[in-house]
């Protein structure tokens, strides 16, 4: 009895193994070609000077040194961090406020309309809405300045002054993305157990103290996730800036992504462009691993 059963069992295992590899082959093959291999190649390229005619030459850390010592690249680095910090703060805070406002009983058609209004900007391409906002932000023919002057205020150089351009882009980014965080926070708020909410209402009659003492700590893992997720997106900012200001005035709004494209494909500084993208990836990896470590601690807690 024993040998035949083992035979069929190992047969089954063999068939299953073969099926398993065949099923993942298309996906893993494409992944290896279009993600894994390019990432590894970019890391290698970042240590080289690449010349399409002659081939590449090993230059060690020269590209990275160039990035971290150049005045221009440092400003671009700072621009990107500055955009990320303010856009993330804006998106998370506004998203949370919207969620608190909408997390109450209301007729379902109202909920549908609210979701429509606040979520629509999230799913429309930044490339499209940036063009519309470009006209809203116009100096003389802009929609916003028209109303400002009608109300008796001085017109604002939304995109043409290096002091305000970055802020204008951040405002548009918050308009576009806050709805995404609102939805996440509504889900988190609805996950707070009713017993805790009831107890909180007894303990803390003041709404805002209740929020900071009890509700915010309860949803803090989600808030933390939102911050990390928003940071990863914000560090890659590209099309909204390209369309609104092309990185200007001067270099006032140029981001790392724009720098990568201009250097690698405009000036054909392939190695240097690769090193900038490696730096961006490393920042993202660090932020993500901090989240992984922290969420592990939260779970234990």
């Amino acid at each position: 009895m024993q040998p035949p059963t083992r035979q069929t069992k190992s047969d089954l295992e063999r068939v299953q193994r073969r099926a398993g590899y065949l099923f993942i082959l298309p996906s893993f093959g494409l992944y290896a070609v279009f993600v894994l291999a390019p990432v590894i190649l970019t890391f290698v390229l970042s240590f080289t000077y690449y010349d399409p005619m002659v081939g590449s030459r090993w230059v060690g850390l020269e590209n990275f040194e160039r990035f971290f010592t150049g005045d221009r690249s440092l400003q671009i680095f700072w621009n990107t961090l500055c955009f990320a910090i303010f856009a993330v703060a804006g998106n998370v805070i506004v998203g949370l406020l919207l969620a608190l406002a909408l997390n109450r009983a209301m007729p379902s058609f109202l909920l549908y309309l609210f979701r429509l209004a606040y979520f629509l900007p999230v799913i429309i391409a930044a490339a499209f809405v940036s063009i519309v906002w470009g006209y809203f932000y116009g100096d003389d023919l802009g929609v916003i300045n028209y109303y400002l002057t009608r109300l008796g205020f001085a017109p604002v150089h939304w995109l043409t002054s290096s002091r305000t351009a970055m802020m204008s882009i951040i405002i548009m980014d918050v308009w576009k993305n806050a709805g995404f965080f609102m939805i996440i926070f509504i889900a988190a708020l609805q996950g707070v157990p009713k017993s805790i909410m009831d107890a909180a209402i007894m303990d803390e009659p003041s709404y805002w103290r209740r929020f900071f003492r009890i509700i915010l700590p309860w949803i803090s893992p989600v808030v933390f996730f939102a911050i990390v997720y928003a940071s990863i997106g914000a560090l890659q900012v590209y099309e909204s800036i390209v369309i609104l200001t092309q990185g200007g005035p001067g270099d006032a709004t140029r981001s790392m992504s724009i720098h990568i494209v201009e250097e690698a494909f405009g000036s054909f500084e392939i190695g240097y462009g690769a090193s900038v993208s490696v730096i961006m990836t490393l920042i993202i990896l660090i932020i993500t691993s901090i989240q992984l470590l922290a969420s592990r601690r939260w779970v234990r807690y």
Binding site: A37, Q236, S277
Partner: peptide, 25 residues
């Protein structure tokens, strides 16, 4: 099948790479 979980993990790592780091190659 052997290696299933490690292959899955390798694929998940892909979530962390922005388009910027694959576009040049």
């Amino acid at each position: 099948f052997p290696g299933r979980d490690s292959i899955f993990f390798v694929m998940l790592v892909g979530l962390m790479f922005p388009a910027q780091v694959t576009i040049i190659p």
